[in-house]
Write a protein that binds this DNA or RNA. Structure first.
Length: 878
RNA sequence: GCGGACGUGGCGAAAUGGUAGACGCAAGGGACUUAAAAUCCCUUGGGAGUAAUCCCGUCCCGGUUCGAGUCCGGGCGUCCGCACCA
C-alpha cells in the first residue's frame, strides 16, 4: 500500500465536521419547541463576553454542557440548550478609545467571529434563541424591570461612598475591587461620595442565606463562599449613655453593636468610626480631632494599606457610662479601624478578648481585664499581655456573670438590658447583622444599559414612562476624552420632563453589566416575546435551569445577583420561582506550561521547541534555537502568552479531538493541563475509532438477533453493556473523565474481539460485534458528535445518531454466573475463590477454608471467624 | 487571622470502608517496513528471588475497624475563598 493511499484512508475531520454541521442545521434537530410535551431539561453554560475569540476555557465549558444536552436529548427529554452574548462592558469602550471603532461595531463583529467559532465546535445549540444583552430588544425589558423593582421598593437611590477607579473613571462594586485595585484596570481604587442607584439585595440577606441549604445540587464550596459573603452574625445593639458634661450636643447617647455582650465587664474604651455622626460633631468643635479624621482618610483602602496600618485613635474627651454601673466611665475614641458601614459604626472595646481592641488598648495604655478564664486556669494568675483569649471558658471579674459560660453570660446580659428601658425604649435589643451590602449598579459608562430615569429641576427623580421604553443608547458618541460620553452628549442628555414639561436631564449612568447577566437565562425561555420580559407560562415551564455550568470565578457575584434578581422577578410577577439554578457545576481551568526567554519575555507555545524528557527536558525558541526557561503551569492567559488557540486545534485535528481531550484525564471540576501529547492521543483515538467501525462494518452477519449467543459473543456483549451502564451513570453525574475511560475500555475489548475474529465469524459473534459497534458509537456521540455521525453512517445506518435514543442496557449481561472473590487472611490478600453467584455464606466459607493458600496462611491455627461481604470480599480472621 | 479543599507511580488520574494504581500519557522491548511515519504486540510502583512466591508501598504520627487511600485526632505541605465585619 502506498503512503498516498494510506493517507486517504484516514478520517478527514475537517471535511466530515463541516458536512455534519450542515446536515444538523438543515434538519433543525437542535431547535427546541416550547410546547414539546416531553419532560423538560434546561442545560446552560455561562454565556461568553464577546471579546473577539473563544479560548480553551470556552471549549471546555461548552463541551461539558453539550455532552449533557446530547445525553438528555437521547434520554427522551425536551432539552433547552441556548447560547447568547454578555455583550455590554468596558472592553468595547477601551477598543473604541484605542482603535477608534464604535463599541457597537466592535461588539457585533466579535459576536459574528465567535459565533462562527462556536459553530465549528458542533455544539447542539438552539441558535434561534440567541440573545445579545446590548440589543435594545433585550435591554428594553431590563429597563422595564428596573422600573418595576423601583415600584416594588427593590431599588433605591443613595448617596454613597463608592469605589472609584481613576483609570476607567467608573464606580466599582466591592466584588470588583481586588487587593484594593480595579479588577480590569488594575488601578488603585479611591473612595468617593456619589449618588448611586442600588438594588436592595440586603433585604434578602436572610432569605438568600437560608435558601442555600435547599440547593442540593450546588457544590458545597460555592454555598460556603456565598454564606461567608452574606456574613450573618447575631449580637446585641446596646445604647450607652454619654456623660452630659462631656457630650458635644444633646445626642447624649451612643449605640453600639456587639457579638460579645458577655465581655461587657472587660470594657476599657469606646471607639467610633471617623465617619460616625458623633465623631463629626465632636470634630466640629475640635480642630485637632478634625485633623486626625482627615489623616485617617489619607490612608488608602488598599489591602497593603490595611494590612500594615497601625491602629490609631484620638480621645474625643467624651465619656460613656457603663450600662451596668452609672459610676463607670469609658473614654470615647475615634479610631481608624472602625467601619461606618457595619453595625452602628461604633463599638465598645474589650482588649482582653479581641485582637484589635488589645492592640489599640496597648498602644494607648488603656489596660485590660480578662473576663473569660480558660478551663483549668487559676483566675487569680490569668493575665493577658499581647495575645487576647478568644476561646471558651468561665466568666470572671464580671459581678453577676461570674461562673457562667460565655453563652449563659450573653443571654443574661441581653435579658437584663432588654428589660432596662430609657426613654420608652429598651437599652439593648438583639440584632442580626449581615456583611452583605446593597448592590450599587450605577456605572459612569457608555456601553451599558441606560438607567430609565429623568432628573427634573422641578419634579426631582422621574421614572421614564413605560411607553417611552427602551431608552436607547445614542450612537453618535466620541471617546476622545476620559469619562462618560453620555454625560457630555449635546442632545441625548437634555430632555423635557415627562411630568411637568420643564427642562430635565437623563440619567447618564448605565447599569452594571452584572444586571444584564442576572436574567438572561429566563429570557432564553422565550426570547421572541416583544412586550414583556417573559411569557410567564413558558418561563415557568422551563425554569429552573436544571444544570448550569461555568467557572468558579462566578461563585459569588453573578450567582448571588442572579438569585436576587430572580426573586425580584418573582415579586413582580414574571415567573414563579426563587432559585434560578437547580444544579450548578463549576468546572476547572485550562492550564498550560509557561515559557520565558532569558531576558524575561514570555513566549507562545507555538514558538517553542521542546526536546528531551524529565530532567533533560529543554526548551528553545523554534526560530533561532535560543534556550528558553520552562516555567510553572498556569491558567492560559494572554499576558503570559501560554495560550493555545482553539481555531488552530480545530483546523489541525478537528473539533471532536479538542472536545475529547477537554473531557479526558482530569476530573471536570479540576484544572486540566493542555499538552501536545494529550491532543495527539485524542487524535489517535479518533482515528482508531473510525478504523474500528470500518472493520466492524465489513463483518457480514445475520439481519435478525440470534436466539443463542456463544461464549465469544457473550464476552463482547458483556463488555458493551457494562460500558453502556457505566457511561450512562457517569454522564448523569458529570464524571466525564470516567466516561472517557469506560469508552477506552470498550474500544480495547472490541479491538481484541475483532483481532480474534475468523475471516468469516460465526453469525452470533458477528451479530454481537455489530451490536457492540453500535453501542460504542452511540456512547461516544455526546463527546464526539461528528465522528459519531460518520461512524454511524459507516455502520450502515441512515438515521442521525444525534437524533437517536440512548441504547437500553440488558441487565442480565451485567451479572456473572460465577464470581471471583479476593480472600484475605487477617486483612492481607492470600488467595481468590470462585463460587457460584448465588452461593450461600456457608458454601463460600467452606470453599475458602478448603483453599491450600488459606491453609498455608493459617499455619495450622483455626480461624476465629470468617467475614463474608457478599459480592465483595472474604476475610478470614485468626 | 478566619473558613474550606486537597496530598496516591515518571506524569494526568481510578478506587459505595473491601484485590491500590482502572483508563490515558511518557518510557523500554519487539513485529511490520529498504527506511520513516502510522499500526499492532509485550513490559512498566519499589525491593528480594532462576522461579513459584514473598516483603514494602496512597505526605508524617497515632486511633477506630475483621479490614483504612477512604472514617477520627494531631502534625507537615500545597491551593482556594474571605478579611480591621466588632
Amino acid at each position: 500500500m502506498t503512503a498516498e493511499s494510506q493517507k486517504t484512508e484516514r478520517y478527514n475531520a475537517r471535511d466530515a465536521e463541516t458536512r455534519w454541521q450542515k446536515t444538523w442545521a438543515e434538519r433543525g434537530i437542535f431547535a427546541t419547541k416550547n410546547d414539546d410535551p416531553r419532560p423538560k431539561y434546561y442545560v446552560l453554560e455561562m454565556f461568553p463576553y464577546p471579546s473577539g475569540r473563544i479560548h480553551m476555557g470556552h471549549v471546555r465549558n461548552y463541551t461539558m454542557g453539550d455532552v449533557v444536552a446530547r445525553f438528555k436529548r437521547a434520554m427522551g427529554n425536551a432539552v433547552l440548550h441556548p447560547m447568547g452574548w454578555d455583550a455590554f462592558g468596558m472592553p468595547a469602550e477601551n477598543a473604541a478609545i484605542d482603535r477608534k471603532v464604535h463599541p457597537k461595531a466592535w461588539t457585533y463583529d466579535n459576536i459574528a467571529a465567535m459565533k462562527k467559532q462556536l459553530q465549528s465546535m458542533g455544539l447542539s445549540l438552539d441558535w434561534a434563541r440567541e440573545v445579545a444583552t446590548c440589543d435594545p430588544a433585550y435591554y428594553k425589558h431590563q429597563q422595564k424591570m428596573f422600573l418595576d423593582f423601583l415600584k416594588a421598593g427593590l431599588v433605591a437611590r443613595e448617596y454613597r461612598k463608592v469605589n472609584w477607579d481613576p483609570v476607567d473613571q467608573t464606580v466599582l462594586a466591592n466584588e470588583q475591587v481586588i487587593d484594593g485595585r480595579g479588577w480590569r484596570s488594575g488601578a488603585e481604587v479611591e473612595q468617593r461620595d456619589l449618588y448611586q442607584w442600588v438594588f436592595k439585595i440586603s433585604d434578602y440577606s436572610q432569605e438568600l442565606l437560608e435558601a442555600l441549604d435547599r440547593l442540593e445540587r450546588w457544590p458545597d464550596k460555592v454555598k460556603l463562599m456565598q454564606k461567608n459573603w452574606i456574613g450573618r452574625s447575631e449580637g446585641l445593639l446596646v445604647r450607652f449613655m454619654l456623660d452630659p458634661a462631656t457630650a458635644p450636643n444633646k445626642e447624649a447617647e451612643l449605640e453600639i453593636f456587639t457579638t460579645r455582650p458577655d465581655t461587657l465587664f472587660g470594657a476599657k474604651f469606646m471607639a467610633l468610626s471617623p465617619d460616625h455622626p458623633l465623631a463629626q460633631a465632636a470634630a466640629a468643635k475640635n480642630p485637632k480631632l478634625a485633623a486626625f479624621i482627615a489623616e485617617t482618610k489619607k490612608i488608602g483602602t488598599s489591602q497593603a494599606a490595611i494590612d500594615t496600618a497601625e491602629k490609631m485613635g484620638f480621645d474625643t474627651g467624651i465619656r460613656a457610662v457603663h450600662p451596668f454601673d452609672p459610676n463607670w466611665k469609658l473614654p470615647v475614641y475615634v479610631a481608624n479601624f472602625i467601619l461606618m458601614e457595619y453595625g452602628t459604626g461604633a463599638i465598645f472595646g474589650c482588649p482582653a478578648h479581641d485582637q484589635r481592641d488589645l492592640e489599640f488598648a496597648n498602644k494607648y495604655g488603656l489596660g485590660n481585664t480578662p473576663v473569660v478564664c480558660p478551663p483549668g486556669q487559676d483566675p487569680k494568675t490569668f493575665v493577658i499581655t499581647d495575645v487576647p483569649y478568644l476561646e471558651d471558658g468561665k466568666m470572671i471579674n464580671s459581678r453577676f456573670l461570674d461562673g457562667m459560660t460565655i453563652e449563659q453570660a450573653k443571654e443574661e446580659v441581653a435579658k437584663r438590658l432588654e428589660k432596662d428601658t430609657r426613654g420608652n425604649r429598651p437599652v439593648a435589643q438583639r440584632q442580626v447583622n449581615y456583611r452583605l451590602r446593597d448592590w450599587g449598579i450605577s456605572r459612569q459608562r457608555y456601553w451599558g444599559c441606560p438607567i430609565p430615569i429623568i432628573h427634573c429641576d422641578a419634579c426631582g427623580v422621574v421614572p421614564v414612562p413605560e411607553k417611552d421604553l427602551p431608552v436607547t443608547l445614542p450612537e453618535d458618541v466620541t471617546f476622545d476624552k476620559p469619562g462618560n460620553p453620555l454625560d457630555r452628549h449635546p442632545t441625548w442628555k437634555n430632555i423635557t420632563c415627562p411630568k411637568c414639561g420643564g427642562p430635565a436631564r437623563r440619567e447618564t449612568d448605565t447599569m452594571d453589566t452584572f444586571v444584564d447577566s442576572s436574567w438572561y437565562f429566563v429570557r432564553f425561555t422565550d426570547p421572541w416575546i416583544k412586550d414583556a420580559p417573559t411569557d410567564r407560562k413558558i418561563a415557568d415551564r422551563w425554569m429552573a435551569v436544571d444544570q448550569y455550568i461555568g467557572g468558579i470565578e462566578h461563585a459569588i457575584l453573578h450567582l448571588l445577583y442572579s438569585r436576587f434578581f430572580t426573586r425580584g422577578m418573582h415579586k413582580c410577577g414574571y415567573l414563579d420561582l426563587d432559585e434560578p439554578f437547580a444544579g450548578l457545576f463549576t468546572q476547572g481551568m485550562v492550564v498550560h506550561e509557561t515559557y520565558r526567554t532569558k531576558s524575561g519575555e514570555w513566549v507562545e507555545p507555538a514558538n517553542v521547541k521542546i526536546e528531551g524528557l524529565g530532567e533533560t527536558r529543554r526548551a528553545s525558541l523554534a526560530t533561532t534555537g535560543e534556550p528558553i526557561e520552562i516555567g510553572s503551569i498556569e491558567k492560559m492567559s494572554k499576558s503570559k502568552k501560554n495560550t493555545v488557540d482553539p481555531d488552530d486545534i480545530i483546523d489541525a485535528f478537528g473539533a471532536d479531538t479538542a472536545r475529547w481531550f477537554m473531557l479526558s484525564d482530569s476530573p471536570p471540576e479540576r484544572d486540566v493541563i493542555w499538552t501536545e501529547e494529550g491532543v495527539q492521543s485524542a487524535w489517535r483515538f479518533v482515528q482508531r475509532l473510525w478504523r474500528m467501525t470500518g472493520e466492524i462494518a465489513g463483518v457480514s452477519g445475520p439481519q435478525s438477533r440470534p436466539a443463542v449467543f456463544g461464549p465469544q459473543a457473550q464476552k463482547v456483549r458483556k463488555a458493551a453493556h457494562r460500558a453502556l451502564a457505566n457511561v450512562s451513570d457517569d454522564i448523569a453525574r458529570l464524571r466525564f473523565n470516567r466516561c472517557v475511560a469506560h469508552i477506552y475500555e470498550l474500544a480495547n475489548a472490541l479491538g481484541d474481539a475483532i483481532g480474534s475474529a475468523e475471516t468469516a465469524p460465526a453469525p452470533d459473534f458477528a451479530w454481537a460485534l455489530r451490536e457492540a459497534g453500535d453501542i460504542l458509537v452511540r456512547l461516544f456521540h455526546p463527546m464526539m458528535p461528528h465522528l459519531a455521525e460518520e461512524c454511524w453512517a459507516v455502520l450502515g445506518h441512515t438515521t442521525l445518531v444525534s437524533a437517536e435514543a440512548w441504547p437500553q442496557v440488558e441487565p442480565e449481561l451485567l451479572v456473572e454466573s460465577t464470581i471471583t472473590l479476593p480472600v484475605q487472611v487477617n486483612g492481607k490478600k492470600r488467595a481468590e475463590v470462585t463460587v457460584p453467584r448465588d452461593a450461600t455464606e456457608a458454601q463460600i466459607v467452606a470453599a475458602v477454608l478448603a483453599l491450600d493458600d488459606v491453609q498455608k496462611a493459617l499455619g495450622g491455627k483455626s480461624p476465629k471467624k470468617v467475614i463474608v461481604v457478599p459480592q465483595r470480599i472474604v476475610n478470614v480472621v485468626v
